[in-house]
């Protein structure tokens, strides 16, 4: 696939949240302001890029030659978990508000779903190292775009009298669902025509 195809695929067509439904919790559940959303987006971009490249290295250099393909899952889970914890420790100060805001140590697991999912997509798609890196960054960019949009919408809905049962997390899910429908305008045929044209 050409570079543009990879970027567009991972950012818009196969958006990590809207079409793969990975990492929905940090984008929908988080409560911080736009800064927290930017923090999550940045964090995710780095995590996904790192885990994609790590996944490629682990998979093609270690697991496949040695034939331990069954051990893929534990290996990838470890890779992404350690990467997430390392990143969290590294830019703790950059991202404290987000983790304190949700007050749940679950976000790194929530983030894991996105990271782990991406590793699996990258390794199954037989992408090379640089392609995995670009794919991870594009997926992070797509993640940030959707998180920013959902945060802006959530800030707007916070001051509106929304039905009580739907207030908060359920409404964010419905917002994500409607956004997923909107993003379906970018499908593979569209990508092929735009790049092919």
């Amino acid at each position: 696939m050409s570079w543009a195809a990879i970027i567009l695929t991972f950012a818009l067509v196969d958006n990590v949240i809207l079409s793969r439904l990975l990492g929905v919790w940090p984008a929908a559940g988080a409560r911080g302001g736009m800064r927290a959303a930017a923090g999550v987006g940045g964090f995710m971009a780095v995590l996904m890029a790192g885990s994609a490249v790590g996944g490629w290295a682990l998979d093609s250099q270690v697991l496949v030659p040695l034939g331990f393909t069954l051990l893929r899952t534990p290996a990838f889970v470890f890779l992404v978990a350690s990467l997430a914890l390392a990143l969290q420790a590294f830019n703790g100060r950059f991202l404290p508000s987000f983790l304190r805001v949700t007050g749940v140590s679950i976000p790194e697991i929530g983030i894991n779903t996105a990271g782990l999912g991406l590793v699996l997509i990258a390794t199954r798609g037989e992408y090379s190292a640089p392609e995995s890196l670009v794919a991870g960054l594009a997926a992070g960019a797509g993640y940030f775009l959707v998180t920013a949009m959902m945060t802006a919408i959530r800030e707007r809905l916070e001051v509106e009298p929304v039905p009580r049962a739907l207030k908060g997390f359920p409404l964010q899910l419905i917002t994500a669902g409607l956004m997923a429908y909107a993003f379906m305008a970018f499908d593979r045929a569209f990508l092929a025509r735009v790049l092919g044209g």
Binding site: L18, S19, L21, L171, A176, G177
Partner: peptide, 15 residues
């Protein structure tokens, strides 16, 4: 589609 899943989950959580 993916969007439908999110909508159903949203309403399930609300219910």
């Amino acid at each position: 589609f993916a969007g439908g899943g999110l909508l159903c989950l949203g309403y399930l959580v609300a219910v």
